[in-house]
């Protein structure tokens, strides 16, 4: 060791060398090794569980999507005061939960709404969403389940509750000219129960459901 440097300086040099050595191990070797193993053993998962239709990647099994269409005014997309396009639910698809990620389901801007339980904005949004959903699906407002009204934590929630999926069945059947029974069967097939019977909640992956729905045609 260099004996000319003072002990204090030596201390900091040792600290720096330690940080660099540990960075090599923990900050390079470790993540690279994990990536290697992950790519070898679980390539699908490691890449992002992408779903393909034909040769087209339509999304990730884990990342929710908005199933909306632009609102057209005189054939042109309507924009709001910020210049963002105004969208409305696409009635042909099962709808996802409300999302606070960017303009909705934007993986580059994951976020929750962070609105508090007494926040007027959330209260109003809840009322409005209930009315909209009830109208869209043609059901009583009281039968709209909570996940249709409240935004998820990530803004990318790929799931909805089985209840919300079921509420949408008559509308989907009507829009796609399918029997309600067929759509209901499809929904039931897509329901994932709680893991091991008690972990988490039962749910339906909306993207998978809608992909299956497209397969069904109509």
């Amino acid at each position: 060791m260099d004996t000319r440097t003072s002990p204090a300086v030596q201390q900091y040099l040792a600290a720096l060398r330690t940080l660099l050595a540990l960075t090599a191990i923990l900050g390079l070797a470790y993540p690279l090794a994990m990536t290697g193993i992950a790519q070898a053993a679980f390539p699908g998962n490691a890449d992002g569980s992408f779903l393909r239709r034909g040769d087209k990647t339509v999304g990730s099994d884990l990342i929710g999507q908005a199933f909306t269409r632009p609102v057209l005014v005189n054939g042109k997309p309507k924009t709001d005061s910020d210049g963002n396009p105004v969208v409305e639910p696409d009635p042909m698809y099962f709808q996802s939960r409300p999302s606070a990620a960017g303009t909705g389901y934007d993986p580059l801007s994951t976020s929750a709404s962070n609105l508090g339980p007494e926040n007027k904005a959330l209260i109003d949004a809840t009322r409005q969403r209930r009315a909209t959903a009830a109208k869209l699906d043609g059901v009583a407002p009281s039968s709209v389940p909570p996940d249709a009204l409240l935004a998820s934590g990530s803004g990318l929630d790929p799931h909805i509750s089985p209840a919300y999926a079921r509420v949408q069945v008559p509308r989907i059947a009507r829009e796609r000219h399918l029997s309600q029974a067929r759509v209901r069967t499809l929904v039931n097939q897509q329901i994932q129960g709680r893991s091991l019977g008690f972990l988490g909640e039962s749910r339906v992956n909306v993207l998978e459901l809608n992909l299956a729905l497209d397969e069904l045609g109509g």
Binding site: M34, T35, A41, A46, D47, G48, G59, Q65, T68, Y93
Partner: peptide
């Protein structure tokens, strides 16, 4: 990873959603 978490060095994958929108799905270690 076995349960589904990602582990890659992707700088983002652009996909076209069912509704016809584009979505950039970001990856990483």
């Amino acid at each position: 990873v076995a349960l589904g978490a990602v582990q890659n060095f992707s700088s983002g994958t652009k996909v076209s959603t069912l509704a016809g929108e584009s979505q950039t799905i970001t990856g990483g270690p």
